[in-house]
Design a protein around this nucleic acid. Sequence first.
RNA 1: GGGCCGGUAGCUCAGUUAGGGAGAGCGUCCGGCUUUUAACCGGACGGUCGGGGGUUCGAAUCCCUCCCGGCCCGCCA
Length: 564
Amino acid sequence: MRSRRSGVSDSMAEPDADADARGNSADASSEETHHAFWADAVADEILERDPAEPIVIKGGVSPSGVAHLGNFNEIMRGYFVAEVLRERGHEVRQVFTSDDRDPLRKVPRKLANADGEIVGLGEVDAGALGRNLGKPYTDIPDPFGEADSYAAHFASLLAADADRLGIPVEMVSNTELYADGTFDPVVRTVLENAGTAREVLAAYQDKVDEEYVPFNPICEECGKVTETVTAVDLEAETVEYVCTDMEAGDSTIEGCGHAGTATFREGKLPWRFEWPGQWDVLGVDFEPFGKDHAEGSWPSGVDIAETVLGIDPPVPMVYEWFTLNGKALSSSAGNIVTVPEILALLEPEVLRYFFALEPKKARDLDLERLDQLVDRFDRFERAYFGAVDDADLTAVAERAYPFLVEEVREERVRLPYTFAAVLGMVEDEAFREQLARDEGHFDDDTPEWAIEDALDRVERARRWAERMDNEYNYRLQTELPDVSVDEDTAAALDDLADFVAEGHDGEAIQERMYETARDHGLAVADFFEAGYRLFFDETQGPRLGEFLGELEREFVVNRLRREA
RNA sequence: GGGCCGGUAGCUCAGUUAGGGAGAGCGUCCGGCUUUUAACCGGACGGUCGGGGGUUCGAAUCCCUCCCGGCCCGCCA
């Protein structure tokens, strides 16, 4: 993975060295420089604060049923900033917190298994979830019975996704941070200054009253996260609590009524304090977050960080949400997609490209028109190599493209996605390669690895055609389909068979099809349809004559004669 | 009701941080490959830059206002 930049590092190194020199020497008076790539602007902002090394970039989510594409913003947006900073010579640590001491508030309707496939509750031990409402995710068994806990299962999904996309990110369990005492000083500070904490938060949340204690112990009796703290002992670092009912959305999770004592490690801070607490203990310098946090958690988090914890909040970045097929991502509505599902349809670099686009714009991932996204990536790639007459695009590509691919290689070949889908109509690899060669995508100088990589897209485009069941979802029929033709058509097909048997190339066959149809008084369209029925069991298909020209001659002849 | 972020061609999006030519790809249409059959090539069509007002010699870009969409302003994360 470290080799990603090696291909062009020589040519890219000089301007970066300049940028670095500017940044280090004349920081205070640093003028606003225009950056084509948003991550550079963010990096400037981070460096203006003269952060300690390693610079820490964080993301994080609460475990839910499915690790979907939107969750991945938390990792990918930070990744580009991390890479930019690394390229400028800084040491960067990218962490991702699984906020897994949060209690399960409601049973999710969908889950993702270890392969990222979405399954319903019927396929897992759903009772294990229902019985454990109100408990921290780390204390709930994995419904698939594989990982140590529900939280571990979810975290491993994201870790696997990060791995698939080649993102080096350090997974941090929030529960661990409490359990190993990392959070102790923050909990102590918050509870020591509970009055100030209340005051600050009350400005953002109406419900905060005199009774409010910013700590939620875990009940030693029933294991649920509780909300009613009756006393705090700062000396002993413990709190007294009563396990009362908890409101979760429109339902209530019943407490067991137990009254007990919990240490600072046996509970959690409410989210509004926990988030700034993470900034504190992890030394976070930059954190991207979704627009849902922009007006709620973020302003109160800044205030809490500065007023209660006495730290500087990280550089923020709000990202817009993705939609899928024009609608909001929603696991309950079934409108959801995971990283592995997308990677079945396109290359990792294309998905990375999607995340490299301007974060402030809402983006739709339209699976029906995935070809458009891939086309745009291909163009972006060509722009990097200077082959697109578009100065703006080229400026962004020069900067961002090297972060998208494992290695910059100019000899790389990209088959247009829809063309790849056409090639997917046949199974034979050699035939696919031949077709691509005939189209001029490969020549004698094309390296073997480039051909392999290019043909890899055919597999993905094929899956796309099948899953979308679109106009590319044709498959060459290896068995003779059940087709009946009238007398004239039969005669025409036999003529064409004779012509093919003589040995002609695809172009000649294509021409001959028109002539044959005319000779037999057939409408061209009808004759083509008969051909599509014979070879694809469909009424339409790719350019037929040239397609047949590439197939094994005997097979074509026999099929045209309706013999096999 | 208040706040934040968006609104540019049929679709997907650049361009707004720094005011000066309204753009790209795809789609559509037309044409080429002697003959409509989805891969290739050329061309054309296509936009009140959400509406209105203001500043300016000049506004997609800056200011004001209104409309539309998402999110937040309860709890929770």
